[in-house]
């Protein structure tokens, strides 16, 4: 069953096409790695996948639902490169706020467990402003998985994480994948600690498969 599908997607900024005729179907529990240099269109691909921007042509769907509808966003989790966290709120307040947007009164069990796994439980009542980028990134990972998404889109999920953070991130991704969560994650060229079922590269706006 396809969880997320891009059908004939083109995206243009001003006169230049960043993405050209992208066709991608993400199966259940499938992990896809998208590589490419800076400015190649990796973030655009993810933003289209979570409905933050409209394609110039083509469509993006979660199952049969248009990705831009609030209903589709129940199934999606998005980890952008810059954490969308409120600096003057504590880690707990930030997570509780996003939990509320998923209609949860309190932090769900899987987030509390991941908090401990990431070593974030000691920072729960600290303001995000007081945390380093690496720790903010960890908080943002928890924000992205708060609604137990069926599809997780992650923009360079390992950047800013130290070895322990990377290891926990890999185990978290593997755990989510084994439960059927599909994911697309991006990286510039270089070492990738997580395993992917497919590796794609954006070349001149086209999505090219590198490994089956």
């Amino acid at each position: 069953m396809s969880m997320l599908s891009y059908k004939g997607v083109w995206k243009r900024y001003s006169q230049d096409y960043v993405l050209k005729d992208v066709n991608l179907v993400l199966g259940e529990g499938e992990a896809v790695l998208v590589m490419g240099p800076n400015g190649s269109g990796k973030t655009t691909l993810l933003k289209l996948g979570v409905g933050l921007i409209r394609p110039s042509r083509g469509e993006v769907k979660v199952g049969e639902i248009d990705v831009r509808s609030p209903e589709a966003k129940r199934f999606l989790g998005y980890l952008p490169h810059s954490p969308p966290l409120y600096l003057d709120l504590t880690v707990r307040e930030n997570l509780k706020y996003y939990a509320g947007l998923h209609e949860m009164e309190d932090l769900p069990e899987h987030v509390l467990e991941a908090l401990k796994g990431f070593g974030l439980d000691r920072f729960l009542d600290r303001k995000v402003r007081e945390l380093s980028y690496g720790w903010r990134r960890r908080v943002d990972v928890l924000r992205a998985i708060i609604g137990l998404p069926r599809v997780l889109l992650m923009d360079e999920p390992f950047s800013g994480l130290d070895l322990n953070g990377r290891n926990f991130m890999v185990s978290l991704m593997e755990g989510l994948k084994s439960e059927g969560t599909s994911m697309i994650f991006t990286t510039p060229y270089g070492e990738v600690p997580a395993k992917a079922d497919r590796v794609l590269e954006i070349r001149g706006g086209n999505l090219v498969e590198l490994k089956g």
């Binding site: 979570v50 952008p80 810059s82 969308p84 996003y98 947007l101």
Partner: peptide, 14 residues
């Protein structure tokens, strides 16, 4: 301006 709008817009809120 603070970059939190994407977090709000990617959440299931109309």
């Amino acid at each position: 301006e603070t970059g939190t709008l994407d977090g709000l817009r990617s959440s299931p809120v109309d």
